[in-house]
């Protein structure tokens, strides 16, 4: 059975879709079968970031309603054989998602794939709660910025109360993915530092993605950054995060930070 990951944040625009695509492509490059699922019904964008927007035929709502079977709706990535996309519907609204329907689709995906990565919509309403409902692991995407950290805290609370795991009394595994991090500004004291965010949210760190022009370039081209420019700093950070998700112990480094500081960071607990 595959693992179900929800990529969530509460706040919009912090990098959920970018991170879903990048982590999905990074895991697929390890030769594991990956499905990325867009839960943002009505405002889909994962197809665009993955470069599959011209090929969408059926979507998540079609599969839930039985208009299409799951294999018909899955779009295979043109670059990676083991990477698949299940797009969201663009013409329906979030009420088209039903709890039973989502449960059935996720259950089916888990049988075929090693990883099912659910890209949550922003907000705390139905789309977001259904995206996290069946997750085994949550990746909380946060920017080093006050409103993002506050919304992440709210989402962590929901992960601990509104998911199936939480309702069954199990512990929900949660990881922090800090995106758009600028170590120079943090060093100068103009941006929250990694440790500040970790102390406030107190969940383990999955990775630090540096602020980078490579991320926008990748979305311009319609390729996950871990595919379009695998050697770039954000891609390297996503590859490391993917290895940690897969259970490897990889020490966390702050991208772009001076060498002398690495020693200090070595002691930091990885996810």
């Amino acid at each position: 059975m595959g693992k179900v990951i929800v990529v969530t944040s509460g706040k919009g625009g912090v990098g959920k879709t970018t991170s879903t695509a990048a982590l999905g492509a990074a895991l697929a490059q390890r030769n594991e079968k990956v499905a990325v699922v867009d839960f943002d019904v009505g405002l889909r964008n994962l197809d665009l970031v993955m470069g599959a927007e011209r090929r969408v035929v059926y979507d998540l709502v079609n599969v839930i309603n039985g208009d299409a079977k799951l294999p018909q709706a899955l779009i295979r990535d043109k670059r990676l054989d083991t990477l698949f996309l299940l797009p969201a519907s663009q013409t329906r609204d979030k009420d088209a998602l039903t709890e039973e329907g989502v449960e059935r689709v996720i259950g089916e995906l888990k049988r075929y794939f090693d990883w099912v990565i659910c890209d949550s919509p922003a907000g705390i309403e139905k789309g977001a709660t259904l995206a996290m409902r069946h997750a085994d692991v949550a990746v909380v995407v946060t920017n080093p910025e006050v409103s993002s950290v506050r919304d992440s805290d709210r989402i962590i609370g929901m992960l601990d109360s509104k998911t199936l795991k939480a309702e069954n009394g199990e512990r929900m595994e949660k990881h922090l993915l800090l995106t758009r991090y600028d170590s120079l500004r943090a060093e100068r004291g103009d941006m929250l530092k990694v440790d500040d965010v970790l102390e406030i949210l107190s969940i383990p760190l999955l990775g630090i993605i540096p602020e980078s022009t490579d991320v926008l370039k990748a979305s311009n081209l319609g390729a996950p950054v871990t595919l379009s420019d695998a050697r770039s700093a954000p891609a390297q950070a996503y590859f490391e995060a993917a290895r940690r998700l897969a259970g490897e112990i990889v020490p966390v480094t702050v991208p772009g930070e001076k060498r002398g500081i690495f020693g200090k960071l070595f002691g930091r607990k990885a996810a």
């Binding site: 665009l48 663009q90 319609g222």
Partner: peptide, 17 residues
């Protein structure tokens, strides 16, 4: 540059939508 690619992709997509 990547921006012209973004522009073209959006034009095609939005025309269809």
């Amino acid at each position: 540059r990547s921006a012209p690619a973004a522009r073209e992709r959006l034009q095609v997509l939005l025309a269809h939508e």
